[in-house]
């Protein structure tokens, strides 16, 4: 899966947890999941679970901790897909 397809799929995973869906329009690699998208920490766990389902991967606790920005989330997802 190329990077564009990955980011689009990740946006779909994130979308249900946004109070303001228009924030997705500005998403790029540097977008911070909590500070920029205002996702709360409880929903961050939901997103990890939904990403596991969407990408058919398992995200361990250490990897989840690295998913701070969109770029870092994509790196973890790519890593798990390739594993």
């Amino acid at each position: 899966m190329d990077q564009n397809a990955l980011i689009e799929k990740l946006k779909e995973v994130i979308k249900p947890y946004l109070e303001d869906e228009t924030l997705l329009e500005k998403v790029d690699g540097d977008t911070h999941l909590i500070d920029d998208l205002h996702i709360n920490s409880a929903n961050l766990v939901d997103i990890i679970l939904d990403a596991e389902d969407a990408f058919d991967i398992e995200i361990d606790d250490e990897s989840a901790e690295r998913m701070i920005t969109v770029k870092e989330a994509l790196a973890v997802i790519s890593e798990k897909i390739e594993a």
């Binding site: 409880a42 766990v45 939901d46 990890i48 679970l49 606790d61 989840a64």
Partner: peptide
């Protein structure tokens, strides 16, 4: 409402 979405799998992450 939150409990509906939070399965055992959720709590295993927490």
């Amino acid at each position: 409402v939150m409990a509906v979405r939070r399965s055992q799998r959720y709590w295993n992450k927490v």
